[in-house]
Design a binder for these strands. Structure first.
Lengths: 138, 138
DNA sequence: ACTATATCCTACTGCTTTACTAGGAATAAG
DNA sequence: CTTATTCCTAGTAAAGCAGTAGGATATAGT
């Protein structure tokens, strides 16, 4: 029960980008060196971040990536959902309230998943890139 | 980011055991049928639960399993830690405060893992088998 | 035009984990 | 002695994880 390295690397790289004031692009090579991450692995991660429109790219020499939006407006939840898939999604918890598929009646365990999901959502939504970069969370 | 079926099955089976008043053992066959789970898979899960001394077993005909302690005294956290391994354990968060290995100085991202871990621990520790079985959590 | 530096994209690979299945030994009740 | 059950090991197909490899495309500077 932990996040994958994709999430960790991606989040760390995004915090680095949040530390840059202007919109000049930063290359993956620089980020990878600074954070000691495989550059090619980071490329794949950033393809997903770009498709999710969390970063924008500049191709060619002196190119790289920059944040697509204000760092204070990008939540950790958004990033992790892109890199990790839905956080604690269970069919159990679907909106139509169909309940568990395995038997009739309510599942006595689904309340555990729901509480986890609610709490995770709150925490991750309450943290954004600017806050992380400034280290204001404690 | 979700718990494995091991955790789900194990937790559901434990709730079933919590619904039995006396200490008469319930066989895995009965639990497996009721919960629509593979009996042999459930066996493996219960080997771990027994080794962790959360359940006790009675071998032979009319044997089975029963809870080793009062259901109000067995938390969801204990069960999930047995079946899933440590919840959100990161080297980052070790007590010695060594910090992240990947670079000097504090990791700006570890606060995310820590907050997750703290919240998870609180929630899972606050729910026990009796409460789940009675459906008191909402 | 040419070169160096980037992103972009696909494919592959070794490893681990997951969710089981198979088969048998040991134990106990009737 | 049969039946029901736990106990234990091994195997296995599929998926996921954490990368690596190699090339196509785009752009800045010379």
């Amino acid at each position: 029960m932990k996040f994958s390295t994709r999430s960790e690397y991606g989040l760390r790289a995004m915090v680095v980008l949040a530390g840059i004031q202007d919109k000049s692009p930063l290359s993956l090579r620089q980020i990878a060196e600074q954070e000691r991450i495989s550059e090619q692995y980071l490329e794949q991660i950033f393809m997903d971040l770009r498709k999710a429109e969390l970063v924008q790219s500049v191709r060619g020499a002196y190119g790289g990536y920059y944040l697509a939006r204000d760092p204070a407006d990008i939540t950790v939840k958004e990033i992790l959902e892109v890199l990790e898939g839905p956080i604690f999604h269970y069919e159990c918890l679907s909106a139509d309230g169909q309940g568990c598929s395995f038997k009739e009646g309510p599942c006595l365990v689904q309340v555990v998943w729901r509480k986890m999901q609610e709490s995770m959502t709150d925490i991750l939504q309450g943290m954004n890139l600017q806050g992380l970069q400034e280290g204001i969370y404690e």
